[in-house]
Amino acid sequence: MQIMVRLINKFNSSSSSLEEKIAALFDLEYYVHQMDNAQDLLSFGGLQVVINGLNSTEPLLKEYAAFVLGAAFSSNPKVQVEAIEGGALQKLLVILATEQPLTVKKKVLFALCSLLRHFPYAQQQFLKLGGLQVLRSLVQEKGTEVLAVRVVTLLYDLVTEKMFAEEEAELTQETSPEKLQQYRQVHLLPGLREQGWCEITAHLLALPEHDAREKVLQTLGALLATCRDHYHKDPQLSRMLASLQAEYQALATLELQGGEDEGYFRELLGSINSLLKELR
């Protein structure tokens, strides 16, 4: 804990140079990966200091503050709650909604993902604060393809997380009633539909990387019940799926010839085939 106090003081000191502040955040990120350390940040007000670092006019400080926060939030409910109360969500969304270097937005998106995962209350607040609009603008900016894949992955995770929480509650009664109630108040799918994510996600299939397409296909599958009518009316999606089907059929055949029965491309082909079947 003393080390973290020293690092926070170094970061927060007006006499520290920019390099010293960044070095302090870099070292702090290493420590907060451990849950206990991340929670110790709360005990002496360190978390709020880092959250306030998101207000910096210096892009590198924003970037490294977000890096620390992403590590601290990860699967750490106490820190997540404190962060919401400390205004972290608003600050993260403001950075994503304004003109910033891509490196800053990458780390801020990482922090946002860490804050939202397994924390339905934060997901509710995210929707209330217009988070889906912010992410929509983000993926539609030129040159942000790398962020688009991460955004789609986040949306997939949130959709499936809520679904699994509700299913698990029915089957095992293990989910706490309070948490289940919170998940039920996360109206994510209607929001995605209203904000045009059915079309946005479908058009991201045009990304050239296989792993990006894999994430997009997963998300299209998760949104199927909500977006089915949109998908049906989207000729571009039908053409894209047919084109990818041919491409992955050829790649899967090569895999098979190379002795791979359950290869990566065959799996992707399976996802495409099942989507096409659903949309017939």
Rank of each mutant, 00 (worst) to 15 (best):
L25S: 12
S16R: 02
L115P: 05
E214G: 05
F67W: 15
L47I: 07
A169H: 11
S75K: 15
A212V: 04
Y248Q: 03
T172D: 12
V49R: 11
T160A: 00
L109A: 08
L189M: 14
L279K: 09
D36G: 03
G131M: 08
H210G: 05
L42H: 13
R239L: 08
I8D: 01
A83W: 04
Y31H: 15
K107V: 00
L251F: 02
V216L: 10
A222G: 04
S176Q: 09
S16M: 01
L147C: 01
E255G: 00
Q245R: 07
E29C: 08
C198R: 10
L7Y: 15
Q48P: 07
L217W: 02
C198L: 09
K179D: 03
R193V: 04
N273A: 06
T153Q: 07
Y31M: 11
L60K: 13
P177E: 04
E209H: 13
Q249G: 09
K78C: 04
A23N: 13
G259T: 07
H187M: 00
I51A: 11
D40Q: 14
N9F: 08
I3N: 15
P190N: 00
T144R: 08
F110Q: 01
G131N: 11
S274K: 13
L171Q: 13
G191V: 02
E199T: 10
L171T: 03
N76R: 06
N9T: 01
E58Q: 13
E278I: 00
N273G: 05
Q124H: 12
Q245M: 03
E166Y: 02
K10M: 12
Q125W: 11
G45L: 05
K21A: 00
E85A: 08
L223E: 05
L92T: 02
N76F: 07
Q48W: 08
A38N: 02
N76K: 07
G196H: 00
Y156A: 03
Y183W: 14
V134M: 08
L223N: 03
A252V: 01
T226V: 05
Y231N: 08
L96P: 15
R136G: 10
Y121P: 01
L127G: 09
V32I: 12
Y264Q: 10
T144Y: 14
L220I: 14
L61F: 10
L155R: 04
V68K: 14
S17F: 04
I272W: 05
